[in-house]
Structures are given as structure tokens and as C-alpha cells.
Design a protein around this nucleic acid. Structure first.
Length: 555
RNA sequence: GCGCCUGUAGCUCAGUGGAUAGAGCGUCUGCCUCCGGAGCAGAAGGUCGGGGGUUCGAGUCCCUCCAGGCGCACCA
């Protein structure tokens, strides 16, 4: 019995109580769905509901009396072993072992599909993340968005949403010229100019540019600047793609800011917003009256010198996403960009959209290493390439994805290194590889999911040990964890769930054997436990995949 | 000054109004004669930043104060 089925049984019991007059409430005063949850204490049963506490006052009765009535109705339901009233009016429900154990087979049969839901079916989203300037390597901050953003794409898709992962390349503007100038300086063996990019990687880019254009330093100054900028840009973007590839992060769309300017989309966007009546001219500049909406001051679109601002490009970019058919536009931004949210929403509103429905901004707090803020212009940068090489993609992805985005994260370099052995990712991966080891050992002793004659050996009532009840309950939760994680845009819930599942599995492993002792015969208990073992393996693998982390068969 | 985020065990962090606030690391004690000890069992460790309020019930919601991070461009 799944929690959804139990919830429906409770709804039916409430409706019946209303129908026969026991419960003095209108049928439409009942909750749309009855909330059931896993109690923290095992002795409180498999599931608990507080619905009696919520409804008693409205119905003019006491919570315990209402819970008593519900209990009597519920125990008549097949699969429910007990329903006890506890405390102020909680209803603690215990399922019979057979009804609970059936889940092991359900999971194994569903395979990769177990955990997929249709909670977000029909939703179409564009999810933009990282979007770093192509003037340097990705650093620790980008790494966090990469881990979270990619996991979110996977999780939302698992919940049925249509999601496009997009990277916005900020390849327009003055910083590209500064990047080119820095490359030329390094090509000459000189220090970078003031305001340039001091990182050592610029020397690598300079070497790559020189390899392609040995004539770089012989060119006229203007031409050299262009070549350094353009060839350097391509080399840096290629390096970023290599890094993300090594991290297992895939983008569906790489969107160049330049194309917005070159195609006239920026100018067109200004005109479209003008038609909507929110554009005005002042002091020679063209403004968007963002204060009509949620912004605290108006913003310039076209400078007095005729150059469009970055903000104008973002307006054009917003309209591009709208025109490309994305009702939902999700932005994963760093905390240092949170001042941008109101402007973004103003663009949406000015374009005639509903910002609350069409824009969603997820703010990710910064990562601190040993108390030092990371910034690529500060010379103390910790690059994503180095992190991957140091800790491995799995440990890095997992340790960054297991915290909510809005938690400021501070890790010391030493601790991250130490975590390479004690990180929870290994705990979860170890559980998975252990399920595989159990499979191998079972095969050696000819323990299979069916009997030797091929007949069905699965008997869910044999999964009656307390660690098995806990494990089965945990497996039941997976689909709703996926749904919840997708709806709240919180990948860390998957990681936390996997850690709980791994703990339940390890406990079960230490109590219940799948393979009999050498002097014992193989029974249906062993065979049925193999189903449970394989169900756990499946859910661990499915969950790790949602985080982009591997599920090794051996470690 | 204004806005956003955060404040929970020694450390790093979970906990979308419920029962005795949890996990990992660190510290201490047990468990390898049999499916992987990267594991299990147990112990110690808390005024959930302070103070008000809403509620049958608040770490969670509201107000206020304190502390820390980040942001408030005709930069990108």
C-alpha cells in the first residue's frame, strides 16, 4: 500500500463519516487530500496523520473522538493492520507486512521508472545556469551551480516537466576587449594591464592563440586586438565546455549574447517594450520605466552615446526565451546578482507577462573556502578543473548538491579533501555497491528471485523484520521525494533521502541475510529478500542518477 | 540608509505548523568463526541568536532587535 492509497483510504473514511452524520461537517470542508507522513519514532507505526487535530474544532468534536472514529473505519480497510489514536489526536497506522512488502516487487518491476512521476507534466521550462563570462575558467561558485542546476534539470524531468538547460554566454561588452588585451600582454611575456585578467590561465590561452596565429604580435595593433579577443574567446569557451563535460553537465542550448546585438534583437526588444508603453527618453538615453513594477529605480536601455546596456540585452534575451516557447523561465543566479531579480521581473511585466508565473529566480549563496571569498580576479581562485581532479566528479557533485542553494556554504580545503574518504557520497555509493556484492554472493549460492523450477518465490509477508518494515517504508517515500524535490527546486532532498535509505539498508544488511549460511538451505525468505535487496539497489541507482553521480558496482 | 540570504550539537549542515529537534565529522565504548568493518550497536554533546505575538501545538508563520554574508551603475 502506497502513501497515496492510504491517503485515499482516509479521505474515503472521512467522506463516509460525513455521509452517515458522524462527522458534522460539509463534504466540501474536507481537505482535498489527507496528509500522511512517516513518524519519526518507529513505535508510532508506519504512517501517521494529524487530520483529526485539524478538523475536530470545525466539526465541534474533540480530536481524539474523531480519530477514534477514523480508526474504526480504517482498520476495516485491507492492508491496514492497526490504526491507533495517540497523543492529542494523532492516528498512527501500521500496515500489514504483506501489503508493505509487495512494494519490493513493484520497485524491481518498475526499474528505472520507479520514482518518475507526472507531478510536473505539461510544464515547459527554460532553466538557465552558470552563464559565466568566457573570459576565464569556471570556479568553485560555478561548480555549485553546475551541480545544482544539472541535478534540477534531471529531477524536474523525472517529475514529468519539459526542461531545456541553457547557458548564456556573456560574449559582448568591454570585458572581452580586456580579455583580448590580457592575452596580448601574456603573449608578449608581459604583465596584464590594469583591469585585465591576471590569472595564469591567460598564459595558456595566449599560447593557444599563438599556436593558431603565430603572426599575432606582428599584426597591426587593432587587428591583433581583434584576433586575440576572438581566438582567445573560442579557446576559453572550448575550455569551459571541456570542464563541464568532465563534470557530466550537458546544456541543450548555448546562447550567445552577441547574436542578440548582431541580429537586431536588442533594438527590436526596445521597440517592443516601447509599444507596451513603458519606455521613455531622458537626458539623451532611452529608459525602461521599471518602477511601474517592482523595481526601485528606472533603468537605462540605450545609453546617451547610443550603446545598448547589458540590461537591454537581457530584455532581448527574455523576449527570446518567450518567443522560443518557454512559459517558465528559471534563473539560477549567484547571491551577488540578487539585486537583479526586480529588474528581471520588471522586464517580464513590461513585456505583458506575469512575473510570478513566468519568472523564477533561484538564488544560490556563495561558497567560501577557508573563509576566503573566491573571485577570479583576486588571484586566489579555486578552479573547477582543479576541484574535479582533486576530489573527483562524484564527490564534488554530491557534496555541492546535498545542501540547499540558499545556504551559504563554507568548506575548508582540508575538510573537502578529508571528505574524499568520509563524504556521505561514499556512504551512499557503498550501499549501492554492497547491494551488488549481495547479488554476486546470492548468485554463487544459487539464490534467485524464483525457485529452481522457475515458480514464483516472492512472498511479501516474509519481509516482517523491523528493519525490513523500515526499509520498505523508506522505499515507498521515493516518488514523493522526487516530486517534492522538483516542485521546490531542491535537489538536496534527493541526497538526504539517499543517505537515509543507505542507513536503513546497512541496518537491514547487518540483521537479515540474503544468502544462507553454508549449512543452511535456500528458502523463499532468502529469495524474497533478494527482491528487496534489488529494489534498494534500483532506488539508490535511480536517486544517484538524478544527482549525476555514478552508482558503482564495486568500490 | 534600503533590499535579499543566513543564524540549530565542538565543526559542516538537515528539518515546506506536529509527538522525545536529527545526520555526518570529531570524542568515548562495544561488534569481524560465515553475504564487503567505506559497515553496525551504544554513549556524550542543544536556552534552535535575543525578545514579543498568532496557534490546541512554533526551529518552522508574523513583528522587533542583535550578528554575519551579499547587493543597491548610462559596469558586465
Amino acid at each position: 500500500m502506497t502513501p497515496d492509497e492510504l491517503s485515499q483510504a482516509l479521505s474515503a473514511a472521512l467522506a463516509a463519516a460525513v455521509a452517515d452524520g458522524t462527522l458534522a461537517l460539509d463534504a466540501d470542508a474536507l481537505p482535498a487530500s489527507v496528509h500522511v507522513e512517516r513518524p519519526k519514532q518507529r513505535e508510532h507505526g508506519d504512517w501517521a496523520t494529524n487530520v483529526a487535530l485539524q478538523l475536530a474544532k470545525k466539526a465541534g468534536t474533540t480530536p481524539r473522538a474523531l480519530a477514534d472514529d477514523l480508526s474504526a473505519r480504517l482498520v476495516a480497510h485491507p492492508g491496514v493492520a492497526a490504526a491507533e489514536v495517540a497523543g492529542p489526536g494523532f492516528l498512527n497506522i501500521t500496515l500489514d507486512a504483506g501489503a508493505a512488502g509487495e512494494l519490493a516487487r513493484t520497485v524491481v518491476v518498475a526499474g528505472d521508472a520507479y520514482g518518475r512521476t507526472d507531478a510536473l507534466a505539461g510544464q515547459v521550462h527554460d532553466l538557465e545556469f552558470i552563464s559565466a563570462n568566457p573570459t576565464g575558467p569556471l570556479h568553485i561558485g560555478h561548480t555549485r551551480w553546475a551541480a545544482l542546476g544539472d541535478a534540477l534539470v534531471r529531477i524536474m524531468r523525472a517529475a514529468g516537466a519539459d526542461v531545456t538547460a541553457e547557458y548564456y554566454i556573456n560574449d559582448a561588452g568591454a570585458q572581452m576587449d580586456k580579455f583580448g588585451a590580457s592575452i596580448i600582454a601574456r603573449a608578449k611575456g608581459e604583465e596584464v594591464p590594469d583591469g585585465g585578467y591576471p590569472g595564469d590561465y591567460v598564459k595558456e590561452r595566449a599560447a593557444e592563440v599563438l599556436e593558431q596565429r603565430p603572426d599575432l604580435l606582428d599584426l597591426p595593433e587593432d587587428e591583433a586586438a581583434t584576433v586575440a579577443r576572438e581566438v582567445g574567446y573560442e579557446a576559453q569557451l572550448a575550455a569551459i565546455r571541456r570542464t563541464l563535460d568532465a563534470f557530466g553537465v550537458h546544456f541543450d542550448v548555448w546562447f550567445s549574447e552577441r547574436t542578440l546585438h548582431e541580429s537586431g534583437a536588442v533594438a527590436e526588444a526596445v521597440e517592443r517594450l516601447r509599444e507596451q508603453g513603458h519606455v521613455f527618453d531622458d537626458g539623451g538615453a532611452v529608459w525602461l520605466r521599471t518602477t511601474d513594477f517592482t523595481d526601485d529605480k528606472d533603468r537605462v536601455l540605450i545609453r546617451a552615446n547610443g550603446e545598448p546596456t547589458y540590461f537591454a540585452a537581457d530584455a532581448a534575451y527574455y523576449l527570446s526565451k518567450k518567443d522560443r516557447g518557454f512559459p517558465g523561465k528559471i534563473y539560477l543566479l549567484g547571491a551577488d546578482h540578487h539585486g537583479y531579480i526586480n529588474r528581471l521581473k520588471a522586464i517580464s511585466a513590461a513585456a505583458g507577462d506575469d512575473p510570478e508565473a513566468n519568472i523564477e529566480v533561484l538564488i544560490g549563496q556563495l561558497v567560501n573556502i577557508a573563509g576566503e571569498r573566491m573571485g577570479k580576479r583576486r588571484g586566489n581562485a579555486l578552479y573547477m578543473d582543479d576541484l574535479i581532479e582533486w576530489l573527483g566528479s562524484d564527490a564534488l557533485r554530491y557534496s555541492l548538491a546535498r545542501y540547499p542553494a540558499d545556504t551559504p556554504l563554507s568548506l575548508s580545503g582540508e575538510e573537502m579533501l578529508k571528505q574524499s574518504n568520509d563524504n556521505p557520497v561514499f556512504y551512499v555509493q557503498y550501499a549501492h555497491s554492497r547491494t551488488c556484492a549481495v547479488d554476486r554472493n546470492a548468485a554463487d549460492r544459487a539464490v534467485a528471485r524464483t525457485r529452481d523450477d522457475g515458480s514464483d518465490a516472492f512472498d511479501p509477508a516474509l519481509l516482517a523484520h523491523e528493519t525490513e518494515a523500515a526499509l520498505l517504508g523508506r522505499l515507498t517515500e521515493f516518488p514523493r521525494i522526487v516530486t517534492q524535490s522538483a516542485e521546490l527546486r531542491e535537489p538536496h532532498r534527493i541526497a538526504r533521502y539517499l543517505e537515509s535509505l543507505a542507513a536503513d539498508y546497512h541496518k537491514w544488511y547487518s540483521e537479515c541475510r540474503v544468502t544462507p549460511y553454508p549449512d543452511e538451505e535456500v528458502t523463499d525468505t532468502h529469495r524474497t529478500r533478494l527482491w528487496l535487496n534489488d529494489a534498494v539497489r534500483q532506488v539508490l541507482a535511480n536517486g544517484l542518477d538524478l544527482l549525476g553521480v555514478s552508482a558503482p558496482e564495486r568500490m
